Simulated scan of single mutants.
Amino acid sequence: MPAFRLAALGDSFVEGRGDPDLDGPFHGWVPRLAEQLGIPQRGVLNLGTHQATTQDVVDRQLPAVLASKPPMIGVIVGVNDLVSDYDPERFRRNLGTIYSSLRGMDTTVFTAAYPDIPKNLAVPEVFRNLLRERFAEANSVLRETVAATGTLFLDVTAIPEWSQARMWAADGLHPSVEGHRLFADQLTEFVARATGLVPPALLVDG
């Protein structure tokens, strides 16, 4: 099995949708983050898949990461739960399973808050308000879970750039090219501060 140094679990946000790649379907923040951390692409395991839910991560993606045991793991998942078949108890249980399972390894695990995606969607106001209630509840559950498991948590809801339309693709669900770049940049600085790592990208910039 390859010695992966960075693994990413989750949905199409992790897959890279919204950031087309000439050499494949998508690029995204994962390879951008790896590059800034000095990790070659052969050392990256990106398991992100379109329409993946927290249940998909538990059933299909988590076992692969537990087997490969990379030193750094990113998890971004849950939006598909919130916008489709939302079950609060299942959502809470799955987040607990994901982050508590990763906690048992000697690795750095990071995630991010759910941004105000409902703001971007062309949906009736009643449904938008319902989605916002779900996203607020989901962020509360996520914060509790990451606090209990020692997971690094980037609160994008407190970062003004994520409220700007240019950070989002036309569908409103996925980051734009600029959004993926911003997320990679923010994660690089966030992980570096939290772990004491000095990524090559920051050495160059400095």
Rank of each mutant, 00 (worst) to 15 (best):
P118V: 07
A7V: 12
F183N: 04
L197G: 07
N120K: 08
T97H: 06
T108V: 15
P2M: 08
I98Y: 03
S176V: 06
G43S: 13
L142F: 03
P31Y: 13
T49K: 14
A136Y: 03
D106Q: 11
D56T: 15
P160K: 06
M72P: 02
F153Y: 04
P88F: 07
L154C: 05
V141A: 13
L47C: 13
D21W: 10
R103M: 08
A194M: 15
M167Q: 02
A170I: 00
H27L: 09
V58E: 00
V58W: 06
D106H: 09
A3H: 10
H27S: 08
G196R: 15
L66N: 06
L173V: 00
L9M: 15
Q61W: 11
F26D: 10
A170T: 05
M167P: 06
L66F: 01
I159Y: 02
A165D: 02
Q164T: 00
R90G: 14
G38W: 11
D56I: 13
G28A: 05
P40E: 11
A148H: 08
R193T: 12
H27V: 01
V58R: 04
P2I: 07
D185S: 05
G16F: 02
V191A: 04
A122H: 04
F4Y: 11
P40A: 12
L47K: 15
T97Y: 06
H27R: 05
T54G: 01
S140D: 09
Q51D: 05
W168M: 00
L131I: 03
P40C: 12
F127T: 10
